[in-house]
């Protein structure tokens, strides 16, 4: 699980959108599972699952209808099996027949996650998946994300540094659209000479350094 950190406007969401093929890179190329997103977008899309910020859904659809729609969008060979697996993993059994608009934010987030894993992607991109949730919902969704990370790579963008500290193996720090630091937390602390610092202090120090230098730190 990789934590994607940065101040507001650092370029986290833009980078995630580029990785998911929603936006093109202004230069260079992006390879997902060996597929160039510019030339083989459809193939790359099949191995990436995406949950944008706020979990956009169609409120008038029932959960199962929405998942059926998404499975058709990905032309899944066995939609019933895929839906059943996603429903089980995301704990949606009790609400599958309910309209999405009637669900709590926590459940809507789960529906978004179920849709993102429906095609069993090897990479899951989650943009602020716990934002706007109450503390109990945060714990539930965080647990779910941890479970999902067992068999796939997860790229997680969040402002909650404790979340990153709790569940991420690696951290990518962005500032002004550039990579500032990357690695696991102990090595980042070591390299910055802040071995006892909290992630918050580390984040502030590395971002400030990037701003003062006006470019890439590492």
């Amino acid at each position: 699980m990789v934590g994607f950190l940065g101040h507001n406007g650092a370029g986290k969401t833009t980078s995630m959108r580029m990785i998911c093929g929603v936006l093109p890179p202004s230069e260079g190329s992006i390879l997902v599972g060996g597929h160039d997103l510019q030339t083989h977008r459809a193939q790359a899309a099949r191995i990436v699952g995406y949950l944008p910020e706020g979990s956009p859904l169609y409120p008038e659809m029932r959960v199962v209808e929405y998942l059926r729609f998404r499975s058709r969008l990905y032309a899944l060979p066995d939609p019933a099996e895929a839906i059943s697996t996603a429903v089980d993993r995301c704990g949606l059994k009790d609400v599958v027949k309910r309209p999405i608009g009637h669900l709590s934010r926590g459940y809507r987030q789960r529906v978004g996650l179920a849709a993102a894993i429906l095609h069993d992607p090897s990479v899951l991109v989650l943009d602020e998946p716990t934002s706007g949730l109450d503390p109990l919902q945060v714990i539930e969704v965080r647990q779910l994300i941890e479970e999902l990370s067992a068999d796939r790579t997860i790229l997680l963008s969040t402002h909650v540094l404790q979340e990153v500290e709790a569940i991420c193996d690696r951290v990518i720090l962005l500032a002004r659209g550039r990579l500032v630091a990357e690695g696991d937390l102990p090595s980042l602390r070591r390299e910055s000479g802040m071995e006892d610092a909290s992630l918050e202090d580390l984040f502030v120090a590395l971002t400030a350094k990037a701003f003062s230098e006006g470019g890439v730190v590492s």
Binding site: R17, V22, P56, Y58, Y74, A75
Partner: peptide, 14 residues
């Protein structure tokens, strides 16, 4: 408005 266009853009649908 719903943001679902982003999800469609991220899917294999052309």
């Amino acid at each position: 408005r719903l943001g679902t266009l982003e999800l469609i853009s991220a899917s294999p649908a052309s």
